[in-house]
Simulated assay, not measured.
Amino acid sequence: MHLGKTYRISEFLVWTRRQIYVLLAVGGIPVILYQVLGLRWLTIPLTVVGLLGTAASFIVGFKNVQTYNRTADAQQVWTSILNSSRFWGICVRGFVAKPADTRDLVERHAAWLTCLRYELRTPRVWESMEKASHAEYRRAYRIPEREKSIDEELCKYLSEEEQRQILKVSNKATQVLWLQARALRRLLDEDGISLTSYIELNKILKEFIEQQGRAERLKNFPYPRQYAIINTIFVWAFCALLPFGLLKEFDKLNEGIAGFMQGSMVWLVIPFSATISWMYTSLEQVGESTENPFEGSANDVPITQIAKMIERELKEIIGDADLPALPEPTNDIIL
Rank of each mutant, 00 (worst) to 15 (best):
V96A: 06
V169F: 02
H109S: 05
I81C: 06
T122K: 06
T122L: 04
S85Q: 02
E127N: 08
S149Q: 01
V106I: 15
L158V: 00
N83A: 14
A140N: 09
N83E: 06
S159W: 01
R138N: 09
G94Y: 04
S85I: 00
R142K: 12
R108S: 13
R108K: 15
I143S: 05
R103K: 15
N171I: 03
S149K: 06
K131L: 14
Y137I: 00
K156V: 12
K156D: 10
R142V: 13
E145I: 08
R124I: 00
I90T: 12
I81Y: 06
S85H: 01
E119I: 02
Q165E: 13
R139P: 03
F95W: 00
I166T: 13
A135E: 11
V106K: 04
D104H: 10
V176E: 00
A97M: 04
S133H: 13
E107L: 15
S85L: 01
E119H: 13
L177K: 03
Y137Q: 07
A97T: 09
L113D: 05
E119R: 08
R142T: 11
R164N: 13
A110C: 15
V125S: 10
L82T: 08
K172F: 09
C115F: 04
R86I: 03
A111V: 05
A135W: 10
W78S: 03
A181H: 08
E145M: 05
F95V: 00
G89S: 07
E152D: 14
L177S: 04
R139E: 14
L154N: 05
K148R: 11
R164I: 02
R139G: 03
W78A: 00
E145W: 02
T174N: 11
E130H: 10
I81A: 09
E130R: 12
L105Q: 01
I143Y: 01
E162H: 13
I166S: 03
L113E: 07
G94R: 07
K168P: 04
V176T: 06
A111I: 01
E136I: 10
I166L: 02
E152H: 08
E153M: 06
W178A: 13
S149N: 08
V176N: 00
S128C: 08
V176S: 01
I81L: 12
R146T: 10
S159A: 07
F87G: 08
Q175M: 10
E107S: 11
N83T: 10
R121S: 11
A110Y: 03
A140T: 13
E152R: 04
N83M: 06
T114S: 15
I81F: 04
A135Y: 12
K168C: 15
C155L: 09
V106M: 00
W126E: 09
A181I: 04
S170H: 11
A132N: 05
L167P: 02
R124N: 06
S80V: 03
S80Y: 09
R182M: 12
Q175K: 14
V106W: 03
L82S: 11
H134R: 12
F95Q: 02
Q165R: 09
R86E: 04
E136H: 10
L116P: 03
Y157V: 05
F95T: 01
V96C: 06
Q163A: 07
T174C: 11
E130A: 10
D151C: 02
R124K: 14
L120T: 01
L179R: 06
T174Q: 13
P123D: 10
V92C: 04
R86H: 07
A181F: 05
I143K: 00
A132I: 09
R139K: 15
V176W: 02
A181Q: 13
V96H: 05
D104K: 15
S84A: 14
R103Q: 12
